[in-house]
């Protein structure tokens, strides 16, 4: 019960300390919010890009074009050979046979190519297989996929195997770079947040030096003195988190139309979506933890220096 009273008291004291210098608290909150906004928006965009990047990066395809003169039954029986080779190269893959008629039909469905197809006369397309690869896109895996493509090329009845590994490698590298860059920027800005909160609490500790000294003489423990400042740091983190989240949502709302237009020009549909409840809670919790961390460091340093 005493523990609960002490915490309730600390929450009250923290609010009182904020009320004593509201303007400085508001400005600090804005600074922290701006610092948080970038990693937050980065996180939300990465969450949005994850399904897209999974689709592009993690499920690359190998297209196997068979010889034009290969009989249909022979073409269909090649599936067994392809599956065996996939297993041998430890590549998890799903195999789809695309008869030349279906390929032409698909080509026809693309509106802007109908005229071109109608001028061709006979079907120029061969029977084909599409090998959809599943799993991650590490350097080692790219090598495995390359080896599989080479092996597939040697199978009798196969005319061409198409795998743009350079493209795959570049995309994997870009994705890795973007992810690393995001984490670097996020870590740097998190340090900025901790530093700002640290300084805010340091100034508060200086402002309340008399009160702290008197409380110490009256028998206050370190925990009693520190608690309101911990809560102030956590408040700062929470409010800055809410503010930066609002900024990010406004940003998403403003950017969504041009982003959708850009995606449409590439024949795809993409929109930045609002974060779900889980992500919101995670981001706010992270902001609170950063605020608490900055406050803890500041209080710890101050208490070590005084008796």
């Amino acid at each position: 019960m005493k523990w609960l009273i002490a915490h309730w008291r600390a929450v009250f004291d923290a609010s009182l300390k904020i009320k004593m210098a509201p303007l400085s608290f508001i400005f600090n909150t804005i600074v922290v919010a701006l610092a948080l906004a970038l990693p937050m928006s980065g996180w939300i965009v990465l969450q949005d890009l994850q399904p897209l990047s999974n689709q592009v990066l993690v499920d690359p395809e190998i297209s196997i074009y068979l010889s034009m003169d290969l009989p249909r039954d022979k073409a269909e029986s090649l599936a067994t050979d392809f599956k065996r080779l996939s297993n041998q190269h430890h590549v998890t893959a799903s195999l789809t046979f695309i008869p030349r008629e279906s390929a032409l039909e698909n080509l026809n469905k693309q509106a802007d190519l109908t005229d071109v197809v109608s001028t061709l006369g006979a079907n120029p397309l061969p029977d084909a297989y599409v090998v959809k690869l599943t799993g991650s896109t590490s350097e080692a895996r790219v090598k495995q996929v390359q080896d599989l493509a080479t092996a597939l090329e040697k199978v009798e009845g196969v005319h061409t195997v198409q795998l743009d590994t350079l493209w795959l490698k570049r995309l994997a590298a870009v994705f890795t770079l973007a992810t690393s860059l995001f984490w670097f920027v996020a870590a740097t800005l998190c340090c900025v947040v901790v530093a700002v909160v640290f300084n805010t609490i340091r100034l508060q500790l200086l402002t309340h030096a008399d009160e702290i000294n008197v409380s110490r003489l009256l028998g206050a423990t370190d925990a009693f003195i520190a608690r309101p400042f911990y809560y102030t740091g956590a408040y700062l983190g929470l409010l800055a988190g809410l503010l930066s989240l609002a900024l990010v949502l406004i940003g998403i709302q403003l950017l969504n139309q041009p982003v959708a237009a850009l995606a449409q020009s590439y024949g795809t549909v993409f929109q930045l979506s609002w974060p779900n409840l889980g992500t919101v809670i995670f981001l706010l919790l992270a902001a609170v933890v950063l605020g608490f961390l900055g406050a803890s460091l500041s209080v710890w340093r101050s208490l070590r220096r005084s008796l």
Binding site: M20, V214, L217, G219
Partner: peptide, 24 residues
Amino acid sequence: HRAALPYLRRKLGLILQQNSLLND
């Protein structure tokens, strides 16, 4: 120990030379 000092101080009543009242 530093952590035990507050508990000892709770058994003391201090009246200091400088005015140690909180004016706010």
